[in-house]
Computed example of a mutant assay.
Amino acid sequence: MEPRSVKQALDDPKWKSAMEFEFAALLRNNTWSLVPLPAGGKLLGASGYFASNTMMMVSTALRDLGFTTTKSDVSVFVRHTSSSLTYVLIYVDDILITGRSKSEISDVIQRLDSAFALKDMGPLHYFLGIQVTKTSDGGLLMTHSKYVQDLLLKAGMSGCKLCYTPLPSTLKIQATGGVEFANPHMYRSVVGSLQYLTITRPELAYNLDKASPTSLLTLKAYYDFDWTGDPNDCKSVGGFCVYLDRNLISWQYKKQGLVARSSTEDEYRALADLVVELIRIKGLISELKWSVSEAPMAYCDNQNAVLLAANPILHSKTKYFDIDLHFLRDYVARNEI
């Protein structure tokens, strides 16, 4: 169980030792400079500076080792040689390294350690609240078991029994008229924690929106929107999910920012957003030196939206969303979607 406060962490010898190691590494890496507080100045949290400074330091070291940043995600680095392919993922001061050659991975770790202080945690088991288990067929199983237990403890529900409470897809929640939550701060905190949980539990996305070697791959997506689905402002709600082969890799459920004057307009704008996500994913796959077997497929249940993507004649239905119309049609015409 992770400590709930600094005092609990300092009372645990193992946590105290880990904190001392981290602090020593920050000093060795010259993460900050200690200067007097200017007269009249106020202290601010330094997490943003710490994150950007650490990212810059690690990025510089990786580029010196021949890595390049992907255009689709600045935290992903790739090094491709004739004999190996190595990936590095950075999140603040946490680093994941993987690739086809164990010797190449060990070499990268040693070279990074010579550039700045780091600790090799061994094979991946736990990262950013996600538990990772290697399966017998060589795959990885990601779960949030420990994260969920900590969240239940935070919400005072660790002793509660399991109860299935599916949320009806036709539920309409009004912004006013209900009973106020007794602890709004706790409510927002729990909802925020649940949003992070959707990384391994995407089926929670709908409920949360209501509360707040080289092989060929196939990329396909499904999307749907409920026109004027929010009874408070008549804005549409819905989302999409993207699959790489049989693996769900991206999803979204949200309320549209504008009121759509027709269901076709609403579906087409949502489809344009989905295309942007497909382009980003396809670009990232390409930069990781993998290949997609064919143009990504996007499936929807609105026939007008499908026809508009290929037919420039239906002008009467497009005058309110011309930009999205031409953006999407260009990609369909080039057989990229």
Rank of each mutant, 00 (worst) to 15 (best):
D11P: 05
D11V: 02
P13I: 04
W15G: 03
A18W: 10
M19Y: 06
L37H: 12
P38K: 05
F50C: 15
A51W: 15
L62R: 03
L62T: 07
L65M: 12
L65A: 04
T69D: 13
T70Q: 07
T70K: 02
V74Q: 14
F77D: 07
V78M: 09
S82Y: 10
S84A: 14
L85T: 15
Y91Q: 08
D93M: 05
I95H: 03
S103H: 08
S106D: 11
R111I: 05
L118W: 05
P123C: 03
F127L: 07
G129W: 09
G129L: 00
V132K: 03
T135G: 01
G138P: 04
L141N: 10
L141Q: 10
Y147T: 09
A155C: 01
A155T: 04
S158M: 00
S158R: 03
G159R: 07
K161L: 02
K161G: 10
Y164R: 08
T165E: 09
T170V: 11
L171T: 13
I173Q: 04
A175R: 04
V179W: 08
P184C: 00
R188C: 01
R188V: 00
S189G: 02
V191Y: 03
S193F: 07
L197R: 06
L197V: 12
L197E: 07
T200Y: 04
P202Y: 02
P202S: 04
E203Y: 10
L208V: 03
A211V: 11
L216V: 11
K220H: 13
T228S: 11
P231M: 10
G238I: 12
F240G: 01
C241Y: 08
Y243F: 12
R246C: 04
L248W: 09
I249N: 05
S250C: 06
K254Q: 11
A260P: 08
E265C: 01
R269W: 13
A270D: 14
A272W: 14
V276I: 14
L288E: 09
W290F: 15
W290A: 08
A295E: 13
A295R: 11
P296C: 13
N302E: 13
H315T: 07
K319C: 00
V332F: 09
R334M: 07
